[in-house]
Amino acid sequence: MTGYILSRLGQAFLVLWGAFTVTYLILYLLPGDPLSIMLGASGIQPGSLSPQQLDVLRAQYGLDQGVVAHYFSLLGGYLQGDFGRSLADNDPIRQLLFARAAPSLELAGSAVVLSVLAGCGFAYAVSLVTWRPLRQALTRLPALGLSTPVFWTGLLLIQIFAFDLGWFPATGNDGIQSLILPAVTLAIPSGATFAQVLLRSFGDVWREPFIVTALAKGLSRGQVQARHVLRNALLPVFTLIGLQIGNLVFEAVLVETVFARVGVGRLAQEAVLRQDMPVVLAIVTLAAAIFVVINLIVDLLYPVFDPRITRTPRVT
């Protein structure tokens, strides 16, 4: 068990380092002079500066050290929790992220909970429907949720629940009221994915031979579903939750924009538009960190749900 945890932790760090490095390479080593891009981001025309001034700035941004040294100084900073400063307003990126992260985590967290509950609940209910036509119609519903873009769903929800019914505010960041519509919007695609996978998984587990054993005990279909099917069917969904976090980060950017919410998603959008490279690097690394941590948790919890992983049979 200790070996399992250590190997997973090691993999997590490797992935994180890889994400940081690839992002760095893309941002700083692709064609184009990083300095002039950075100056553009700060609102200065590079042509208006003398070569001496450019050298001073190059040193200030650490670009005079050569690529390798610059990379390692950035990496060293990250390891100590120092993400550098934003080009646009020279604020420490750490503060910027902390200020924006809370509302984003609220949004993403409630979206995850909502999508898991709604997706799994929907699949559970559908698999108990015995009337075939209804069941088939409901089985196809998740595909619709999956194929609708979040910006469209967001706008639709704003139109209905904010403008027509006036139940929730259309935009903004104040309190639980303003969280509901964006969270629902964000939860729909991943919830639909969970529902789709779980429905399929339910179907597979119902065909397993051990279900016959359970039914032969005299259990009802509902009892078999709750005691024998659910846990086995949830295993693939469980893996998927970790993977969906990646999608969620990407869609949070869209949702925060649609609902005009302050958050990391908006910060990312602004930073990309302004070509604020240190901020983009910090956000991508943060997203990768969240992804890695969630997947680490999933991996570590997996043996709890599936005893076959760590309890290897003894060879006798």
Binding site: E208, P209, F210, V212, T213, A214, A216, R227, H228, R231, N232, F305, D306, P307, R308
Partner: peptide, 12 residues
């Protein structure tokens, strides 16, 4: 049942 290898719930 027929095949004992798959006749029991693996997670219980």
């Amino acid at each position: 049942p027929q095949d004992p290898m798959v006749g029991l719930n693996p997670t219980t």
